[in-house]
Simulated assay, not measured.
Amino acid sequence: MLRIYAFPTPNNTKVMITAEEAGLRYQLSRVDLAKGEQRSPEHLRRHPLGKTPAIEHDELTLFESNAICRYLAGLGGSELYPEALAARAQVDQWAEFLSHHAGRWVLQFYWEEVIKRHFFRQPPDEAVLAEAQTMLEQQLPVLERQLEGQTFLANNRFSIADIIGYSQFEICPQTRIDLAGYPRIRQWVDAIKARPAVQRAQAALG
């Protein structure tokens, strides 16, 4: 039995989408961060930092969303994380780019403008957002160029790199990030959003 412990945030979204795209059967257990359920001793055994997502599959417990996505893609025998070394390296390259560069700064906006306001009743740190904006202005053109003449980021095949990126960029409308100057990024996000598995995952997560 595969059990996914999640809460509606971008890192959880990518795990849910991967499970749906891989055609896996799973049981979803919601961990309510607003109520502090992530700090329970039971959940801390799944995720030592008291966060989500985490999964349990048979005897395996796993945390860290990108690692979970790779595992679920393999578990489903899908092409979301290809076996061929060169193709897999391309997926990893763009997954890392999103996690440590462009997507990182998108999530910084989300933290400052959504999470801090909603959960902590705190205003955003404008100095932090100014840095994030500067970095996005350098890095979004890289993503835009990669999507020139192709539909997906790596090997021009839908993969966990696209899922990871979608989970970050689909939240941009909740922030002041303006993607008007990046038509390929917007088209890429819209195309992924329309996928039936993505819609099922987001409906399940709520």
Rank of each mutant, 00 (worst) to 15 (best):
S159P: 03
V142C: 03
I171N: 13
I115N: 01
S167Y: 00
T52L: 12
R45E: 13
G76F: 05
L179F: 08
D178H: 03
L147I: 01
S65C: 13
T175M: 06
E42C: 07
A102E: 01
P41N: 07
Q122E: 15
R117I: 11
L153T: 00
T151A: 15
Q168K: 10
H43F: 05
A130W: 06
L62V: 11
E59C: 08
Q138Y: 09
W94G: 00
M1K: 07
E144D: 07
I163G: 03
G50S: 12
L129Q: 08
R176Y: 02
E131Y: 13
A6H: 01
Y5P: 04
A34C: 06
S65Y: 08
R195M: 05
L28Y: 01
R121S: 11
R70P: 07
A191R: 15
Q38K: 07
A194H: 11
N156V: 13
E42N: 07
L33G: 09
L72A: 01
Q122I: 06
V189K: 01
H57T: 09
L44V: 05
I164E: 05
L205H: 07
C69I: 02
V114W: 00
A203P: 10
A204P: 02
T9I: 14
F120M: 14
L129V: 07
E170V: 15
Q90N: 15
S99P: 04
A22R: 05
L24Y: 04
I160C: 01
A154D: 12
R121A: 15
R88P: 08
